[in-house]
Simulated scan of single mutants.
Amino acid sequence: MLFGLLDRLLVPAPDAARVGWLKGRTFAHRGLHGPGVPENSPTAFALAIERGMGIECDVQRTADGQAVVFHDWELDRLTGEAGAVIDRRIAELAGIQLSGGTDCIPTLRQFLDQVAGRAPVLIELKSKRSLRAAPLCLAVRRALEGYRGQIAVMSFDPRVSRWFARHSPHIVHGLVVTEEGKRTLSATLKLHASFWQGRPQFLAWDVRDLPSRFVAAQRRRGFPVLTWTVRSAELAARAADCADGPIAEGAGVGA
């Protein structure tokens, strides 16, 4: 009861008119990728748009303070290059081809120009405690200037959601959560502390941790809850029961 009271006091429910578009749709996890179509690639994004899906993508900061669409901290798994993304400048990264296809790493601005409002977008900002969050947030906000489509930002790092709540409250901001199956008192304290710090307007929850009493309580308060990563018909059914929309890939798309 105390946690619930503090949740209501410290994290006001979002304006339903601003966040309602997040509900009732499927987001393609890193675009509609598969064999011959790399994740987070322009081809994967084009296929998601053609399918009428929303798009979820990952964004990192470059050495010169720009934003590129790429998931891993290192280039090794997804390209023929090696080393950390953050050590490369944007011009260099934009010329690196993604393995398994012909596309190169897109900048966030290139991605937004491609989508051009034709699909709702979720941008996950890749952040970690050893890095300052503000430079990445600033890079993303600069890229979003003038964009008119439906868009939301989110991160595992509550500092990101908090930054947008303070400095760009007009941009819908959310918190990505995995409990990793932990339901101990210490895990519950950590969960609520992240929620209070982040002050999100929506949640993106690990589907493996559903159902969740916390999720159910926040949904009742009006917080949209998306869930990731839905990869099967079984997980799609769980998402339909416990959340407002799946972030899906593979067999979870259209299941």
Rank of each mutant, 00 (worst) to 15 (best):
L6P: 08
R8K: 12
D15A: 11
H29R: 08
R30E: 03
G34M: 03
S41E: 07
A44S: 09
I49M: 11
M53S: 04
R61Q: 12
A63D: 07
D64K: 08
V69I: 06
W73Q: 15
L78Q: 13
L78Y: 07
A91L: 13
C104S: 10
T107A: 00
R109E: 10
Q110A: 08
F111W: 05
F111N: 04
Q114P: 09
A116N: 10
R118P: 10
P120H: 04
V121H: 01
L125V: 01
L125Y: 02
L131I: 14
A139N: 06
R142V: 14
Y147Q: 12
V153R: 04
M154W: 03
S155L: 00
V160T: 01
W163G: 02
W163L: 04
L175Y: 03
T178D: 12
T178C: 15
L185S: 13
S186G: 14
S186K: 12
A187G: 11
T188N: 15
K190N: 15
H192R: 12
G198H: 02
L203N: 06
D209T: 04
D209I: 02
R213V: 14
A216H: 09
T227F: 07
W228C: 04
T229P: 11
S232C: 11
A233P: 08
E234W: 13
A239Q: 03
C242E: 13
D244K: 02
D244R: 01
P246N: 03
V253G: 04
V253S: 05
